[in-house]
Amino acid sequence: MTDSQPGPILPVRTLGKTGLEVPGLCVGCAPLGDMPATFTYSVPEERALETIRAIFKSPITFMDTAASYGDGESERRIGIVLKELGGVPVGYTLATKADRDLQTGDFSGDQMRRSVERSLRLLGLDCLPLLYLHDPEYTTFEAAMAPNGPVEVLQRCKEEGLIEHLGVAGGPIDLMTRFVETDIFEAAISHNRYTLLNTEADPFWDVCQRHGVGAVNAAPYGSGILAKGPRAYARYEYDEASREYVEKAMKFDDACQRYHVPLAVVALQFSLRDSRIHSTVIGMSRPERLDETVKLAQTPIPDELWREIESIRLS
Rank of each mutant, 00 (worst) to 15 (best):
D3E: 15
D3P: 00
G7H: 05
I9M: 14
L10R: 11
V12D: 05
G19T: 02
G19V: 03
L20M: 06
P23G: 09
C26S: 12
G28W: 08
C29N: 08
C29W: 05
C29H: 10
D34P: 00
D34W: 09
F39I: 08
S42Y: 08
S42G: 13
V43Q: 00
V43P: 01
P44K: 07
E46C: 10
R47F: 14
L49M: 04
T51R: 04
A54G: 08
A54N: 10
T61K: 07
F62M: 10
M63P: 00
Y69F: 01
G70M: 04
E73W: 00
E73F: 00
R76D: 06
R77Y: 07
I78S: 01
V81M: 06
L82V: 11
K83I: 14
P89N: 13
V90N: 15
G91H: 08
Y92D: 00
Y92W: 11
T96G: 12
K97F: 15
D99V: 14
R100F: 14
R100P: 13
D101G: 08
Q103T: 15
G105I: 09
F107W: 03
S108H: 07
S108E: 04
G109S: 09
D110E: 15
M112L: 11
S115D: 04
R118T: 13
L120C: 05
G124W: 06
C127P: 04
L128V: 07
P129S: 06
L131Y: 02
E137P: 11
E137V: 13
E137L: 06
F141I: 08
P147Y: 03
P150S: 15
V153M: 13
C157I: 12
G161K: 10
A169K: 04
G170S: 12
G171V: 08
I173K: 08
T177I: 01
F179C: 05
F179E: 04
F179N: 12
E181M: 11
D183S: 12
S190P: 00
L196N: 04
L197P: 00
D202P: 10
P203D: 10
D206M: 02
D206Q: 06
Q209C: 08
G212Q: 01
G214A: 01
N217V: 06
A218C: 13
G222W: 06
S223R: 11
S223P: 05
G224F: 08
G224R: 07
L226W: 03
K228P: 00
P230Q: 06
Y233F: 15
Y233I: 07
A234G: 02
Y236H: 10
Y238N: 05
A241Q: 10
S242T: 15
E244I: 14
Y245V: 05
E247L: 13
A249R: 01
M250N: 07
F252P: 09
A255S: 12
Q257M: 11
Y259H: 15
A264L: 11
L268V: 06
Q269E: 10
L272K: 13
L272Q: 14
S279G: 05
I282A: 07
G283R: 07
G283E: 09
S285W: 14
S285Y: 15
R289L: 03
R289M: 14
E292I: 02
T293H: 04
K295E: 15
K295P: 00
L296F: 03
Q298S: 12
I301A: 06
D303R: 09
L305M: 09
W306D: 11
E308N: 05
E308T: 07
E308A: 09
I309M: 12
